[in-house]
Amino acid sequence: MTSRGSIVLARTAESLYWLGRYMERSESMARILDVHLHEIIGSNDDNEARWSDQMSTVFSFERNVESFDKLALGLSLDETVPSSIRYSIERAYENAKSARDAISLEYWELINVAFGRVSRYTLDQFGHGLFTFYSIIKERCAQGRGLAVSTMNRDAAWHFLNLGYNVEQLDILLRLIIEKRRSKIPEDWVVVLRSIGGHEAFLRATNSPVSEIGSLNFLIQERIFPRSILATMLRISNIVNELLRGLDESQGFSLPPELPRQIARLEYPLASETGEIDLLLDDLWSSHLLMCNFYYETFFSPLSKSNFNYPLRSEVWR
């Protein structure tokens, strides 16, 4: 491969990273909201109130709404809510467009069409039919991921996209677990497992009924469950190593010790006491934020630290 082929603009890398994050966010949110909306049917008011609170926190929804329905609607289709699925899809589209020359035609087509469709949906149209909306989003996003996997070269562009997907997956899972732990309702863990598509996987892997500690074990360190924190961190570690290999050694960037440290820690059995697990989760969360910062410093910084973040001024003197 020629040296020219390996150029990835800092902006393109950042766009790919965010494209991955927004695609993953759209899919995860659709799944999480879908599961909760289903569970609410025939459930009691306490559950609805609690879940509303939890989802508001997990997805930074800052308005007061009277029902979970309304909350879900806002988080799904309201373009003025910066954490809504619709907003995510639009940002995914913009980032895809900006990185158009780095992604495959098939992947681009899918995002282009998905965007076109979502941007035509209205709040009223899905007021009572969010399930349909979620299944469209889930299907499209899963298709997109499949297309990206099957049609893109495993070059730096792919690694940045893939990094975005995995970072977002880790981000949402950590938020969800931490928030669910806060409300301390053991029954919620079935909902959590379902929300990340892991209920059946849990039953198959553990052969035991759902318990809080069992769920935490499974979600945090189950190697064979691809969405677990450990599995996700291992993938991130591989991607980052791959990307760092492409950098000039003179720049002196290396994998921050945080990541291998956390991974090593998760190789050992978790504490049986939930209080300690909470401490671990907080620690994982700060490592995650630190890593997010590291991606900027290392790969995107020629851009984010560049001039245009500072005011442009002109001097004319007479």
């Binding site: 990835v8 800092a10 492409g246 995107f300 020629p302």
Partner: peptide, 9 residues
């Protein structure tokens, strides 16, 4: 120069 993920070109 163009800003890339590997400094600039």
């Amino acid at each position: 120069f163009v800003r890339t993920t590997k400094s600039s070109r």
